[in-house]
Amino acid sequence: MTVVEPLPVRPPETAVEILARAQALAPVLRERAEEIERARRLPADVVDLLRGTGVFRMGFSRAHGGPELTSIEQTEVIEALAYGDAGAAWCAMIGSDTGLYASFLDHAVAEEMFPSLDMATAGLLFPNGRAEIVPGGYRLTGRWQFGSGVTHADWVVSGAFLYRDGEPVHDSILLMVPKADVEVLDTWHTTGLAGSGSCDYTITDVFVPAEHTLTFAEVRGGTGPLAQPEVHMRNMPGVALGVARAALDHATDAAVSAGREDDYRTQTTIADCEGDFAAAREGVYGALRRQHEVLSAGGSLDDLTPRERAALPLSRRHAFRTARAIVTRLYDLVQTTAIYRPSPLDRWLRDTTTMCQHIVAQDRILQTAGAHLLGGRPAFPLALGITSSRR
């Protein structure tokens, strides 16, 4: 078993430190991947190890005392963790949204809600719940799916439709509640990403103060590149890219160990997959770099050309789809060795298949980007950072 030096007690302060800690943790996550998958959630000590890397704090702005990693740097961190285990990286990606949500809360409220920058958030943003408007806030009830990391989260954010006196208001909102107010249901029996613990959860008649709610249409406590409506989607492809890189390295090492350096099929498959990976990865980081250039210069998402803006969700989708295709081809290349559960290729095949069912990897993204390019109506405008003002 790999011996891991205890992570330094001092919290990391820079992107370089957080990335280095994530890279150091990756071999440990790989070694424990089977255990994580069997548990169908992250063991408590693995959560602590992730917390020690600084991944949960990386989205907090400097105004909150955080390291304020760019979306490019955040994606690199998630990619490094996914090289070890997809489920752990998925939870890290979701949990790191805490600091990003802080920009959509009043600054003082965020300071009170998040006394530690290493607090993790989970939850489903789609409005599956019901929020009854009451004096001072809302009473929230509902059941949500896909609560990735909800078993270890500190806060849970959930989407809900608004009601007043029992009648729908035809609007929705996001509401944050402490994990103690949430009941987790053991529903996460899935093809892949088992370790993410993305269970259903319920909230029943919980009062949520108005100041603990948010909407991506209203930035209340932040400015700059991270205070944007679609910021929580940007680092997602890091999971897919990290898994694809791990699978390529594994297949390459296996081929060399088996003496297949001069086998034509092995050569062409590895080379073709490397080409696909390089193109997909550059697509993601190229789109993020251009976005950061515009936003860090004081511009807005509207200052991107239609192609530049569409490139963001398209590159995310392409990364997920390409990762699945790469793993599938490598699985075929390795042949019967890959079918046994101790093989990481088996787990990566199931993980990439499962993550490709997420909305960011679905055809709805193609329609959204295509509509934007053609001047039509996007089905999922938030993927482009487009919101409508609250009514």
Rank of each mutant, 00 (worst) to 15 (best):
A26D: 12
D263Y: 05
A131S: 05
G123Y: 01
A88E: 02
M58C: 10
P168S: 09
A323K: 02
A338W: 05
S61Y: 01
L29Q: 14
E132W: 01
H250A: 10
R32P: 04
L69Q: 08
Y83M: 08
R309Q: 15
Y285V: 01
G222P: 12
G222C: 06
M355C: 03
M58Y: 02
G286S: 05
L105T: 05
P27F: 01
A86K: 02
A323D: 01
Y163H: 12
L333C: 14
Y201M: 04
T268W: 03
G222D: 07
D263N: 15
A92L: 02
P229H: 11
D186A: 06
A247D: 10
R377A: 14
A310V: 06
S148H: 05
A120N: 04
S172F: 09
N128Y: 07
L349N: 12
E132T: 08
P209R: 04
R309H: 04
M93F: 04
G136I: 07
V157E: 11
V3I: 15
T354I: 00
A194K: 13
R245Y: 03
Y264M: 07
D45M: 06
R40E: 12
F161L: 06
I365G: 01
R32M: 10
V208K: 10
R51S: 12
A89P: 05
A361G: 03
L69I: 03
C356M: 03
D351A: 03
R324H: 10
E308Q: 15
R62S: 13
V169Q: 12
T70P: 00
R317H: 05
D276N: 11
T75Y: 02
V206D: 03
A279T: 14
D351M: 04
I94G: 00
M119Q: 15
L175S: 15
E111S: 13
L374M: 09
Y285F: 15
P8D: 15
E293V: 07
S389M: 13
G385I: 06
E183K: 15
V28W: 11
A108W: 04
G222Q: 08
S158D: 08
E293L: 08
T151S: 14
L69S: 07
H250G: 04
E68G: 09
A319H: 00
V46M: 10
R290Q: 13
E132F: 05
P11K: 14
A110W: 00
S388F: 03
R317W: 01
D351V: 03
A323N: 07
